[in-house]
Design a protein around this nucleic acid. Sequence first.
DNA 1: TAAAACTACTTGCTTTTTGCAAGTGTAAAT
DNA 2: ATTTACACTTGCAAAAAGCAAGTAGTTTTA
Lengths: 140, 140
Amino acid sequence: MKKTKKKSNCPINSALEVFGDKWTFLIVRDIMFNGKHYYGEFLNAEEKISTNILADRLSLLEQSGIITKTKDNNHKSKFVYRLTQKGIDLLPILLEFIVWSSKYDKDVDEDNTFFESIRKDKIKMLDEISNKLKNELIEH
Amino acid sequence: MKKTKKKSNCPINSALEVFGDKWTFLIVRDIMFNGKHYYGEFLNAEEKISTNILADRLSLLEQSGIITKTKDNNHKSKFVYRLTQKGIDLLPILLEFIVWSSKYDKDVDEDNTFFESIRKDKIKMLDEISNKLKNELIEH
DNA sequence: TAAAACTACTTGCTTTTTGCAAGTGTAAAT
DNA sequence: ATTTACACTTGCAAAAAGCAAGTAGTTTTA
């Protein structure tokens, strides 16, 4: 995916210039909810992204300031991928995705306690998760 | 875009099976915020979708139960596209897209009063817009 | 009432993106 | 010293997107 000129300055289109594909949000999801930080971990996701697409998307996310890429100190051949604040701020969008899908797609894996928590007290849930992510960000 | 088997039952992936492209959300946006209802109106959007992609996406959105397609009574050669309740329920997602983009993309067209209203009182905004859309749905 | 214009597509073709398999280069473990 | 682990890169076939032109009903206009 090469960088292309903007189609418009609509805020929704603006988000789609980064996230208008099948994979980018899944990478963010894996860092956000599944505690993944390494290339190999993203590759192992259930959805089976291919290696070249993963490399491309990680690079785009880094260019967009949504994730950072740093060397792992204890393991020099590994890179650590983390969410920036801009990335953490995607949380409300992903939570709304979860709310919508768990309402309308009955095939969705039902971790009902989690979905219910989001629905019942969205703001509390949002604070908890975003504080956890923010701490990870500060510690490194 | 042909219908393909699900890559997983993750709720986020589930939403991306429908919305993981550059165009689908823009069509929903045009119905939701810009009062568009006709094929020709979607074509005229700033982002310039091509005719075959538009036809394909309208058909997918209809199959997914997010929009309905009905004959226009006063104008027999026209079809009216409307959001179902499932489509209206996408509103929180789109509002969060707007919040995120207007925070991080400084090129975004600034209708500050609108963005501020969303940020200041998200729940009120959500009620107002979704009631308006729900009325349209009931009247027809 | 015949011709032109409108509306919602469809078709054919080129370009771009995706998906898959195999390969490369550096670091770590045996 | 050699194998294994990890993070990619490369090459190629398949799928999707983008563009221009065509079609088929429906209204409008002359």
